[in-house]
Amino acid sequence: MSERLLEIKDLVVEYHTDEADVHALNGVSLSLDKGETLGLVGETGAGKTTTALSIMQLLPKRIGEIKSGEILFEGEDLRKKTEAQMRVIRGESISMIFQDPMTSLNPVIRVGDQILEALRLHRPDMSKEEQQKKVDEMLEMVGIPAARKREYPHQFSGGMKQRVVIAIALALEPKLLIADEPTTALDVTIQAQVLQMMNDLKTKLDTSMLLITHDLGVVSQTCDKVAVMYAGEVVEYGRAEDIFLGKRHHPYTDGLFGSLPELNSHAKRLSPINGLMPDPMALPEGCKFHPRCPHCTERCRHEIPVIHRDGEHMIRCHLMDEEVR
């Protein structure tokens, strides 16, 4: 198999607020190989963005804290890096696309200069002309005429802004691109375009991607591997085939698929997962999904389930115990 690029082991992250400690991540383990796309799926509040910010070491200062775990990028633990070392990695090796293109560009700086900034920081050896040429090239690559680099973000539409954000993220041809719900704020037609473009660029630049989304359709189109997150844990992890075509799943994954509308069925109502994501300040005992689980047993209420492996496919659920046996 190909080389391992990113490996997260037992990552625990807490947010300290005035009221209480929020348990955002409770032992997340993930891995991503070179050239692959890993989809991170789950409801709002499952800890997807926290995972991404932990990799970037950009958790909100004083509030967010990585309690334990390892984040290995090319074999090196990012947690052990100094701030100066992280600055070199950010943008250069790992870059990130944020959720809302409307607010992720600086409104008072020309879009060209915002792309240029990344080059100035990480490619000081390039001449000014070369840098400008690269900016033009990046804009053209994401489908924006280079002449528009002198314009400001407010002169661009949402989809165009997201293209600029992507151009910034890819300007240095990073090894890992973290895309945090890159299409959520865009309308459906633009979503497809942007995704297609990201996929093409990813292949062209040989970048690995961590795609955070709650859109399973997007995952099925783009991802090689999928991690399903719930309440700060990865409850199921596997190749896309395992998740989309496999027979055995975590009840939460089943629930996610069950809540998708199907065009060819005549059902009048969707079947959502009942209940809400548990309060991360007071997580339930045992399996964190048990209050909403249709197959909940007495054991689920008290005992934290272990991970069951079947090749690369992993499921964290007690139900798998019997089946494996």
Binding site: V88, R90, F98, N106, V108, I109, E117, A118
Partner: peptide, 26 residues
């Protein structure tokens, strides 16, 4: 607290550039 500050940090911008170039002008 704005998102574009996070974008700047994600680019690898130094703290002084984040504060003076990105935040102060806004």
């Amino acid at each position: 607290r704005q998102d574009y500050i996070r974008t700047a940090r994600a680019k690898g911008a130094t703290e002084s550039s984040v504060v003076l170039r990105h935040a102060l002008r806004n």
